[in-house]
């Protein structure tokens, strides 16, 4: 993810001091993700194509280390898949103002307890900071992937 907007992530509550970026893992993607899972609690990976066996191996490693693996893009065998739709911005007029808040509808589907697709609407940016509680009410049971959201 070389094009990640670190500033936006910081505004969303990411602790910049406790973050490391590996912008170009290249051909060593699997080894890099495995190494990062050993050291970090939360690893986000953007992989365009990832093989089924490799994805399974990395998921197993994450589970084993108690780390959360967030894939930006498709990931075979993911516990929960989150997607956004109906994103609506407000604050910007015609020639005045600036973007202030972003309301989105988040859709979740997955396996196990999260198998039933759900959707909810909330303000992503500019509103009150996200808290785990805004996610938790989406599911009857707390699946690990959801609890570890930042």
């Amino acid at each position: 993810m070389p094009d990640l907007g670190v500033l936006a992530a910081a505004e969303a509550g990411m602790a910049v001091k406790r973050t490391a970026l590996v912008p170009h893992p290249g051909g060593e993607l699997a080894a890099v993700v495995a190494a990062l899972l050993d050291g970090f609690d939360l690893v986000a990976v953007a992989a365009n194509r990832i093989g089924d066996p490799l994805a399974r191996k990395l998921s197993a490693r994450a589970r084993n280390r108690g780390a959360a693996l967030i894939a930006v893009g498709p990931w075979p065998g993911a516990e929960v898949e989150l997607s956004v739709a109906r994103g609506r911005w407000s604050g910007l007029g015609v020639g005045h103002g600036h973007l202030t808040s972003h309301r989105v509808e988040v859709r979740a589907r997955g396996r196990g307890a999260a198998a039933r697709p759900r959707r909810t609407t909330f303000t992503l940016r500019g509103g009150t900071p996200l808290t785990p509680s805004s996610f938790e009410h989406m599911f009857d049971a707390n699946t690990p992937a959801v609890r570890s959201e930042p």
Binding site: A10, V16, K17, V22, G26, L36, G39
Partner: peptide, 19 residues
Amino acid sequence: AMVHVQGLLGQEGVLTPTL
């Protein structure tokens, strides 16, 4: 973990951001 990744990708492979 970061030093390990640097071993794989070189020193510039792992970046830490500061505002």
